[in-house]
Amino acid sequence: MDIVSVENLVKRYGDLVALDHFDLRIRPGEVFGLLGPNGSGKTTAINCILQLLTYDKGSISLFGEPMAPTRYDLKRRIGVVPQNVAVFEELTVRDNIDYFCSLYVGERARRRELVERAIAFVGLEDYARFRPRKLSGGLLRRLNIACGIAHEPDLVFFDEPTVAVDPQSRNAILEGIKAMNASGATVVYTSHYMEEVEEICTRIMIMDHGRGVAVGTNAELKAMVSAGERIEVEVAGLPELPEPVLADLRVLPHVRRAAAEDGRLTVMCGQGTRNVADVLAVLERHQVPMGRIYAEPPTLNDVFLEITGTDLRD
């Protein structure tokens, strides 16, 4: 049974189609990444799933049952960490978490226990009596997360939780998400930071213009495209790389593009098993002095670029 099942979802804002026959299936225990540039429809999809937004067409099921605005039994099993920090400025950290937890858990004693656990989970023990305005951006994000997960939901939506967060807090957030997943929660994670998605997600959907353009594991997505390694070689000893060297590189079967600039040679390859060896062989043959050599596997950005024709960060 899928935890989330969305079929043929269409959402329009006037003439703008925000979700264009969007399909989504998320299995229990996954950390599912929704990756796409700003405006690709990630947040709209989540808001439709959560029944905050009306939609023009399609169906949504959660935990195998049709989702509706009044399905409080289903909502009780869902946690939401919104993109914008949404907490009460007038309440302390502990009171904020207790308030949002109370929207799911009525029993006070049980709630007290959950709140303390959530505070510990995000590492805000020393700030429990602080009001939000006294917290840094990173700590605010942690509070935002604690408010969304305190009731220990089975399914948690994280909508770009690391925007404008320092690296230390970012790492803490990602580790926290992994820990939640390890304890049994299914996670839906939206981001336009491909590195994060690659790091924590077990499956990824790439979205563009309201549609899911590709879905699969990190490896599956990269295998879908012909892009291979990106090889960079420092050639600092030469002011300009001789044109015959570049010509020999370009005729290699897996090389798609080769260029040199500022003492650095960049070679873009397709899928292959001997890319680095072949490139180095050409350079040795021409006795090109080599410094450091880097070989990076294809990124999700390369996948996005090949599928959509535009850069993910555009």
């Binding site: 808001n47 959560l50 029944q51 905050l52 009044t70 409080y72 039994d73 909502k75 009780r76 869902i78 939401v80 919104p82 914008n84 920090v85 949404a86 907490v87 009460f88 949002f100 109370s102 929207l103 799911y104 408010c147 969304g148």
Partner: peptide, 24 residues
């Protein structure tokens, strides 16, 4: 304004909770 989802992010967050809008 604080509990209406179309008026503030806080309202949106309250609206996804499992307590009915009427009770809130």
């Amino acid at each position: 304004c604080r509990v209406q989802p179309n008026l503030s992010p806080l309202g949106a967050r309250c609206a996804v909770g499992a307590l009915s809008r009427g009770r809130v």
